[in-house]
Nucleic acid binder design. Structure first.
Lengths: 238, 238
DNA sequence: CTCGGCACGACTGTCGGACAATGGTACGGT
DNA sequence: ACCGTACCATTGTCCGACAGTCGTGCCGAG
């Protein structure tokens, strides 16, 4: 018995070019903030046509590795921003027919320990940011500020993984959260209370307090959806 | 005081085309498995050049929305595969300088509740898959099977969000896990024991058992890294 | 009638060239 | 030192072309 041949796959040039450039970025050969060589220059270096280079560039752009400063025409290398990545993740989840329950369950698992870590490790600046988000929500009860609050909590853990994991969830819930807040009268005050308590716990570095209040906070979300008559088994759409 | 104008942004045609196609996919107008119209056809419909369409296609491809059956030349619409998305997420995390400690901490937060949910909701098929992964690792102690084991656990929760959240973590750890297993003699048996216990707990639907053994299992990883002399503050590379 | 082979057509991957628009930049004037 | 301007580089888009190949349908052999 001879061992079978590997299925040979011919990768088109634009994929190879993209892979080569991605490699150069992940090895920090191109650092964040660097200007990329011009398309013509790249084409010359790779020995391919400019059109081919452009196709490769689109791939990096979609991965968030390349962005253009507002109103500028030059492309810069960047570390992928969390919300950009989260958008892709969110789309993937939607296409996998995730339900509100799925997302809520994930939040109920992830957020309490995140809050706990935030309480332990927050800096003065983190706290300021967190309280800022909380005050913003008191002023204007927009789901955007709820998202900001969660982002501030995650950021206070100083663990990029946690931030990255959590953003898509909130992003997915955000639209329906607005509807829920509008329909359920007591939602506003319950959210405000929970946020305040969490802020206090984080301020006094009370890991236990942050965890229990975050647990309540997330549980409230589910209660809110039920009161608003939103079917938790409903598939989330964009 | 007049309210300020929105900063007007001119989006290039290839972005608009991509956005339009993504919209058609997320609304299920194009369903998974459908063939896309040919590039020429799309160019005619959008009223742009084929090159422009091709640039847009690369973006969808990079988002995992378009794939080509092996050896085929036709493009098909697909729901983004978890490992494809995970690759992008992983790259983003690497570029954000995540450390082993960051990833490990996230796993220590996420995995125990995931195991708990898996024990509650697993089907006979899930169990089979899980035990299969466990047996594979016993046969050949490759980190790939560790990843498979975690994937099986997450899949048993029947919550796509959890699977999606967890894959990048294991993926990031996988290479160094191999090194750790090679360096620490007792690592193999400890992993095997933990996996067995988790399997048993999942089999008997013992949520508590699954959680506690998963907690131990993840804690072992950290211990293993320390014994192998791997600095936990080290930034992960690809 | 079924199956394998063949020819044709459709489509993708890649190339070369071209041009308008505009951001970047260096120069020269104040 | 600062500002305006003219030039240059670069991006976005289009056109046309061609090789390679996958899919498909036709046809002849068994």
């Amino acid at each position: 018995m001879t061992l079978p041949f590997e299925p040979i796959q011919v990768e088109p040039a634009y994929r190879k070019v993209a892979a080569a450039m991605i490699a150069r970025i992940t090895t920090r050969d191109f650092k964040s903030g660097d200007r990329l060589p011009s398309e013509l220059e790249l084409a010359k270096q790779f020995g391919v046509n400019r059109s081919t280079v452009r196709e490769a560039l689109r791939e990096l752009q979609s991965a968030g590795l390349l962005t253009r400063a507002r109103g500028s025409k030059l492309m810069m290398v960047t570390r992928p921003q969390a919300d950009h990545v989260a958008e892709n993740v969110g789309r993937a989840l939607v296409l996998h027919d995730v339900t509100f329950l799925n997302v809520w369950e994930s939040m109920s698992m992830f957020e309490p320990p995140i809050a706990e870590a935030a309480a332990r490790r927050r800096t003065a600046q983190d706290l300021e940011q967190l309280i800022g988000a909380q005050k913003s929500f008191e002023r204007e009860t927009t789901p955007r500020y709820v998202a900001e609050f969660f982002a501030a909590i995650a950021s206070a853990t100083h663990n990029p993984v946690l931030a990255m994991a959590q953003i898509p969830l909130v992003q997915l819930l955000e639209p329906s959260l607005g509807a829920m807040i509008d329909k359920v009268p007591q939602a506003r005050s319950r959210i405000i209370t929970a946020q305040r308590r969490i802020c206090e716990a984080v301020q006094s570095r009370s890991a236990e307090g942050a965890r229990t209040w975050m647990t309540k906070h997330v549980r409230d979300f589910r209660r809110g959806y039920e009161l608003a008559g939103i079917d938790l088994e409903l598939k989330i759409e964009f």
